[in-house]
Design a protein around this nucleic acid. Structure first.
Length: 324
DNA sequence: CATCAGGGCCCTG
DNA sequence: CAGGGCCCTGAT
């Protein structure tokens, strides 16, 4: 894997719509570890690919929850044109969901028995995702039917074989591969990388992106939730479980929770009902009645808060559910 | 040494 | 719409 040094710097500032909690929107202890980002001392370094170019992003908090301001340093090989900077900015505003107005949600549930305390310390938490649609889909593939260790191993195999590495701001990070990096890749080759039955998903996904049959821009324009769901479910390898992640993380849809996968079921059973296992129907009903219109976002608040608390001080029952 | 479920999905009948 | 097959791994 070749390493590209990015030494040109460009600083810009991003102003998210308040409330926006910097730390809890960038610090994600629930995500499986990947070598494409690094979070330390409230700074996030992330490799970033746009239109075939590699960039290094460095995010720093320069504001408050009610008056948010993010300092972004873009590292690149060559000096960036104004157009490119605008393009990157626009893309980040979408992916980080910076224009989402959460005041109504945070106000509505500030006294909610389950969300109230969380909102108090983490208001402004929202659906954010620095990955492109293609990159997100690849992540959902390797999450399927696998525990953390296997997911990590599949991801590292893919990055080491098809990705690159960049060095910027004294950090070395790996970069996600893009569809064109897999142009000569065969299913057999992917099977050797221990991707198993998922191998054919990657081949089909590459082809559909290269033929522009999957177009992220066009999908973003679909405002009707059920139509969007129907459209993304057509993607080979994406079923009812992955589509829930996709709608919330990639397209920032806050409502419409329809399915709770087994692992989430166990954790929510304990967290909300203090029981070993509650029927998914009952969990869905919980969000539907209490947080109508914000089911997924409410789920996200509970989930993120739990994992942040776990990171700060280990929660025994949760530690047992995180299978390596 | 087997057998099996696991942060699911596709295909068949 | 139910159920079998699929890849690999660690647990039992």
């Amino acid at each position: 894997m070749k390493t590209i040094k990015l030494e040109t710097k460009q600083i810009i500032y991003l102003y998210p719509k308040a409330p926006f909690n910097y730390t809890f929107n960038f610090y994600k202890p629930d995500h499986f570890p990947t070598s494409d980002c690094l979070f330390e001392k409230n700074i996030l370094w992330k490799s970033f690919r746009l239109n075939g170019n590699n960039y290094g992003l460095k995010f720093e908090d320069k504001g408050t929850t009610d008056n948010p301001k993010i300092k972004l340093t873009i590292f690149s090989k060559d000096k960036l044109s104004t157009e490119i900077i605008e393009q990157i900015t626009k893309e980040l505003i979408y992916r980080l969901n910076l224009e989402e107005d959460l005041s109504e949600f945070n106000n509505k549930y500030k006294n909610d028995r389950y969300l109230g305390q969380i909102i108090k310390i983490r208001k402004g938490l929202r659906s954010t995702n620095l990955y492109s649609l293609y990159e997100s889909l690849c992540v959902y593939f390797v999450l399927q039917n696998a525990t953390v260790r296997r997911t990590v191993s599949m991801m590292e195999n893919l990055i080491n074989n098809y990705g690159e590495a960049i060095e910027f701001d004294s950090n070395k990070l790996s970069c996600f591969w893009q569809p064109e990096d897999m142009i000569k890749t065969t299913e057999e080759e992917l099977r050797e990388l221990k991707l198993g039955y998922r191998a054919k998903f990657f081949i089909k996904l590459r082809d559909e992106f290269l033929e522009n049959k999957i177009n992220e821009e066009k999908l973003r324009e679909i405002k009707d939730l059920e139509q969007l769901r129907k459209e993304v479910l057509k993607i080979y390898g994406i079923g009812p479980a992955s589509v829930e992640y996709l709608l919330f993380e990639v397209f920032h849809v806050n409502n419409g929770l329809t399915r709770i996968p087994p692992w989430e079921q166990k954790i929510m059973s304990r967290l909300i009902f203090n029981k070993d296992l509650i029927a998914t129907k009952e969990i869905l009903e919980f969000f539907k009645t209490r947080h109508k219109g914000y089911e997924k976002l409410a789920f996200h608040y509970l989930w993120e808060d739990l994992f942040i608390r776990h990171q700060e001080k280990s929660i025994d029952w949760l530690a047992k559910e995180i299978r390596l």
